[in-house]
Amino acid sequence: MDGSHTQKLGSRSIAASLNGACVKFGDFTALADISLDIEPGDFWTILGPSGCGKSTMLRLVSDLVPPASGTVEIFGKTTEAARLAREFAFVFQDATLLPWRSALKNVELPLEIGRKRGITIPVGDRTPRELLELVGLKGREDALPHELSGGMRQRVAIARALVCQPKLLLMDEPFGALDEMTRDHLNLQLLDIWKETGTTILFVTHSISESVFLGQKVLMLESNPGRVKEVVDIDLPLPRKIALRDTPQFNTYCARLRELLEEC
């Protein structure tokens, strides 16, 4: 009933809307019957056992894999239309920078692609230079990726994702390969960026504490086939500080999610 209602309204005010979406690879069902509405400006984290379809879900939303059945809409558009309008951006686990381009040139890449074909590229309020400053890389504009640390490379990737001012930011374990201190630092930075830009974020992680620390909602997926196990609201105050993780409320959420994860 909810689904048909949002359909009729054209769900323009929903950042991402999945209606009974399934993804199949041959005979294998990676995602089964996912229905979700993600409100604009929300920060969702996605948690689940490995291989349950977290990446597949982001790839479904970002038009990299088609749904076998069901529909996916982004701000009321098809995923393809949203992709062409650069409504969303993707941050991969490894930064996926082009090694021959400087940090600045990597951030500028989305602005170059499509320009010659006369595609209107949405240009954000911030220049690539300002974005590098926002992620704390002022002065390293001309550095090549191999001259930067893993954390710095990931920050360049985030700046690149922000350059077209996406309304939806998809992140697939972006800090999964980083050490804990760098990860903490980037978590705080990401929350600042989220607050400043007001973008919607879908963030895949395999860390329970990261999912609670960042998310307003934690989407728990279960595997075989991948489906929604539960959506847990995280009622923790914003802005969040590292010390939050030592509070009883935080640990209660973590314990609850750990329990859910064990059931998967």
């Binding site: 790839r59 970002s62 038009d63 990299l64 992709r83 062409l84 650069r86 969303f88 951006a89 993707f90 991969f92 996926t96 890449l109 989305p110 692609i113 499509g114 595609i119």
Partner: peptide, 8 residues
């Protein structure tokens, strides 16, 4: 995949 998301 990055190129595809940018509709290159």
């Amino acid at each position: 995949e990055l190129a595809r998301i940018l509709s290159a």
